[in-house]
């Protein structure tokens, strides 16, 4: 392992996250899709149909 590799390993996890646009894209789509859209639809379709 050379010196450059060691330096790359030192990049903190948060920095890696922030430097990866596609990971951020996944987070930005997944969180609102789950907590807002999917959870909301589950609530709406769970309403019993009136007889």
């Amino acid at each position: 392992m050379n010196e450059n590799d060691q330096e790359e390993e030192k990049i903190p996890i948060m920095q890696q996250l922030i430097d990866n646009p596609f990971l951020l894209l996944f987070i930005g789509i997944a969180i609102p899709t789950v907590t807002y859209i999917i959870w909301g639809i589950v609530e709406i379709v769970s309403i019993p149909i009136a007889n």
Binding site: L17, I27, G28, G40
Partner: peptide
């Protein structure tokens, strides 16, 4: 500043829910 932008990415969109705060179709927890 970057972390504040990350917070935007993660949770800013779900504030859309405040338009449905009197909507009977979704529950209080949501």
């Amino acid at each position: 500043s970057r972390f504040a932008f990350v917070l935007y990415i993660a949770v800013l969109q779900i504030a859309s829910a405040h338009h449905l705060l009197v909507d009977p179709g979704v529950g209080t927890e949501w």
